[in-house]
Every structure is written in structure tokens, then in C-alpha cells.
Design a protein around this nucleic acid. Structure first.
Lengths: 197, 197
DNA sequence: CCCTTTAGCGTACGATCGTTCGTTGACTGG
DNA sequence: CCAGTCAACGAACGATCGTACGCTAAAGGG
């Protein structure tokens, strides 16, 4: 019955991956052990075992979703040269992530932010760290571009972070709720306009 | 035991009001009949009775939250004269709503949007109507201001709707998740800058 | 090769979920 | 004033929730 250690890790990955999909479409709160077990063809105990509890499972799923965002947007953008070129790539990747999302239901982090922002706990802390890190990264890339003279010195970095993040969130709503097929293209254009003003 | 017809309406209002508070802090999905009954000191049957089912109760709560947004932002803005003055008032009211929110936990509609955007059903339809109406109203006010020459003709109304909505969403995250006390003021400034460019 | 470790299963637990039902008793129109 | 309407209650239902426990059996170090 027992599989090898590597197989166990594979099982763990499979649980988290399925959990990300399920939590993406229905919310982290809907990530129940029973439904996940059924989707995986496993027993409830087998699903929750490697994570200790449902909370641990939720944390692993949220962390995985954050990793996926980083892998899809942040990491590949680092191959572009710092400054405006990297910002352009970043925007393109970001909007691509929002559009043909790896998640069935829009930006996982944004959804989690709305779901958890008022409920203190370990999950909220994890989310806060994730969002803070992303905003700090974005801020840093903007400062680099501004210092290099690639974007106007009168543009405030904090303002740009708020504006770019906002455009992404608005586009997310347009794509997911309003089914607006032109939203991603508009978001790309608006983001580029915001930094090249 | 039975109260008068007016008292019954009062009870109904009381249920919805408590439901809005609860759904605001924990999400519409967490609006359970049992917890609501306990919070109200009523029986479960008494709580769900006037609405037929839990889904009906959720619809009533979502509709009430939408009404509260309209009453706080849309309606009072109509007293200002059309064009840029009304847009200014609108922005001020909107950001005030985001800041000292009537809800314990940020914009109810934004939260509901993230929660429901991928789950077809009556609730999603109601939310879609609400969001569409709000965006259309915003669009209309922008067009009025642009036609009157109050804002630059080169600014596209759809672009502005996306930008303003986005700034609001970003500010909502900054207020609720990041606990940034300066977020509302920045949002006001960014929104004004966006329309008076 | 044996012995400890452990991945995963099956069962059971109390709690809570949404809904249904019959009952009660105060309102209200005729 | 009396009969009918109906708000609200309390109890019960089957389902599902998260967690705990004991078990099985394969893996892997000694």
C-alpha cells in the first residue's frame, strides 16, 4: 500500500495542484477535505495527512498559487534588462497571466485578498507577505527604471504601484465577471501609458 | 407570538441588515442560517422563512449591499451639477465609502465579485447586473463631462472607467489587507489626476 | 533479512449545514 | 366577535464538515 518517498512527494504535489484548481474556482474556503479526496480518488485521511490539518492544506495551496504567479510573471521578467525593458516585459507577462490564466478563475491572489483581508490568521499573514513582496518587487523595478531615466522623474513609484495593480484588478473583473474579451489588451495599453507618460 | 405586518417587515429588514454585516466580514458563502439565527436570537426557520431559502436570503443581502453603495455614492452625487463637478463629488464619495466603509470589511461588491465571478447562478447574475449598472453610470458621467468639454476629448471613457475602478480596487486592498492609512487620500488624488489630465 | 518507519485507508465521532414539518398564537378583515 | 391568515418557533431529517484513531503493508536503513 505504501509508496516510496518520492512517490509520496508526488502525491503531495498532486493534492496541492488539485487544491489550487479547486480553490481557484470556488475560493479557499471551499477547499474541503472531502471534496478534494473525492476529486483525487483518495481517502480523506490520505489527503489531509501530509498537511496535518485543513489549515495546513490551505496554506500549502496558497503558497503554491503564489509560486505559480512568481514563476509565470516575476522570474521570466528577470531575464529582460533592468529598467523600462523589464517593466514592459513585466506588464506583458502580467496581463498574459490575467488573460490565459493558469487558474480557471482569474487571479488567485486577488481573489484570496478579497476573501481573507478581514479574517486574521495564518492564512492572512501568508497572503499579506505575498502581496507585500509583489508590490515591493514592482516598486523596485519602477525605481530602477526611473533612476535610469527611462520613465519621467515626476512619476511617483507608490502611485504607479497603486495604478498598475488597480488596472490589473479591474481587468481581472472585466475578464472574469464581465466576460470582456478586450480587457487584457486594454490593460496592457493602459499600463504602458501609465509608465511612459 | 406573531407580530403585525409592519413588525414582520422590520424583522425582515433586521435579518438582512445583520446578514450584510456578517457577509461583509466573512463572505457571502459564510452567511449560514444557523449563525445568523444565533446572532439575531431567532430560530433558523424564522430567519430563512421570509426568503424561502438560503439562496433567497443571500440575494436579498447582496441587493441590500448594492442599495447601500448606491445610497452612499450614486444618489448624493446627483445633487451636484453634471460634468466635472459631479465627477469630483463622485470620486470624493467613492473614496469616502472605501475608507470609512459602512461595511466592516471593505467594498462589499468587490469582495462579492471575486467570490462569485466563476460560479454561475442567480447570485452571480444579480452581481453582474449591479456591476454593469455601476460601470454604465460611471461611463455616462464621464461622457457628460467630456461632451461639456470639462475633460480632455482624447481621454477614452472606457479607459477611464477601467482606470478609476482599478484605483478603487487597489485602494480597497491597501486599506483592508495592507492597513495603509494613506490609501484613500492617494486614491482620491490619483482619480482626480486621471480625469483632469 | 529483519525491523522500524510511514503513506495511505477505513471507520467513527460530534458539530453544523439547509430544509421540512407541524404547532402556536397574535394580528386583521369581514 | 369570530374565523382565517401568517410570523415565528422547535424538532427532526439526511448530508457533509474536520478530526482522531487503529490498521495495513510497502519501503528502506541496519
Amino acid at each position: 500500500m505504501r509508496r516510496s518517498a518520492e512517490a509520496a512527494q508526488l502525491t503531495r504535489d498532486r493534492i496541492v495542484a488539485t487544491g489550487v484548481t479547486k480553490a481557484s474556482s470556488d475560493g479557499l474556503h471551499a477547499l474541503t477535505i472531502g471534496s478534494l479526496a473525492e476529486a483525487l480518488g483518495m481517502s480523506k485521511a490520505g489527503v489531509v495527512g501530509p498537511f496535518g490539518s485543513r489549515a495546513g492544506l490551505q496554506s500549502a495551496v496558497l503558497a503554491k498559487a503564489a509560486d505559480m504567479f512568481v514563476a509565470a510573471v516575476v522570474t521570466p521578467s528577470m531575464k529582460a534588462e533592468p529598467g523600462l525593458p523589464r517593466l514592459r516585459v513585466l506588464i506583458d507577462l502580467w496581463c498574459g497571466y490575467l488573460d490565459g490564466s493558469p487558474f480557471p478563475n482569474g487571479c488567485f491572489i486577488t481573489a484570496a485578498s478579497c476573501e481573507l483581508d478581514g479574517r486574521p490568521g495564518e492564512l492572512r499573514s501568508l497572503l499579506l507577505t505575498t502581496v507585500t513582496r509583489w508590490r515591493a518587487f514592482l516598486h523596485e523595478q519602477i525605481v530602477i527604471a526611473r533612476t535610469a531615466g527611462d520613465i519621467t522623474a515626476t512619476l511617483d513609484a507608490d502611485d504607479l504601484v497603486t495604478t498598475l495593480t488597480g488596472i490589473a484588478m479591474s481587468a481581472d473583473q472585466e475578464i472574469q465577471l464581465l466576460a470582456d474579451a478586450t480587457a487584457a489588451a486594454r490593460a496592457r495599453r493602459l499600463m504602458l501609458a501609465a509608465i511612459t507618460r
